[in-house]
Amino acid sequence: MAAEPATWSLLSPACRAMVGKQISAMAIFLALDNLRMNHDAYPDNYIREILNTVKSIAMVGASPVNVRPSYFAFKYLAQRGYDMIPVNPGHVGKNLLGKPFVASLADIGRPVDMIDIFRNSNRIMPVVDEALKLMTLPKVIWMQLGARDDAAAAKAEAAGIKVVMNRCPKIEYGRLSSEISWMGVNSRTLSSKRAPMPTQGMRLSLNRTSVSGGETAASDRAAKNKNDLS
């Protein structure tokens, strides 16, 4: 899990250009280049679509220790029905919640939809390079909370891969389903629609209708400042 930087309330320069100049050459360029994201502020629908369409997730840096954040996220996503694959060369031969560890992305031996990287920012690039060598490219590369490498992101996006940085899929799932609201967390969503009935306890559906709610701009700024300094 770890910290998430929430949406910035400011429009991205790309969006401002499109709104301000309507169909300028810049806007056409940006509209065509629709995989280039503003990584400071992901729209909820971008995240929701990713979490709704990916089925298999390889988690690089997954830990079998049941108090580690990667274990929490792995277990949560497995319980939500994702086909989880733990990737960690230090634990080959062991299982994580019944799933055998593999040493590398190449060892998975089948296509995966998303690669979720539990690594520090300075260790992201080799994983992205490894992902780009796979026979079938992943649809999404996701870097965990605290991890951000813009050069690695640009490389993946150039290959047509969607990128999310400095977020946690567990927190995002919990936020968009409003499940995280049980913990008093600002989900930054509002809804006047009845959510789908929970089928297992508190597990609410990702398909809840919502619009953007409150912001956490101060926290986002603090995270950005910290990232810029390190």
């Binding site: 309330s9 429009l11 969006c15």
Partner: peptide, 10 residues
């Protein structure tokens, strides 16, 4: 694109 943010009263 970013999401539109609601106001305080909302």
């Amino acid at each position: 694109m970013t999401d539109r943010l609601p106001g305080f009263s909302t």
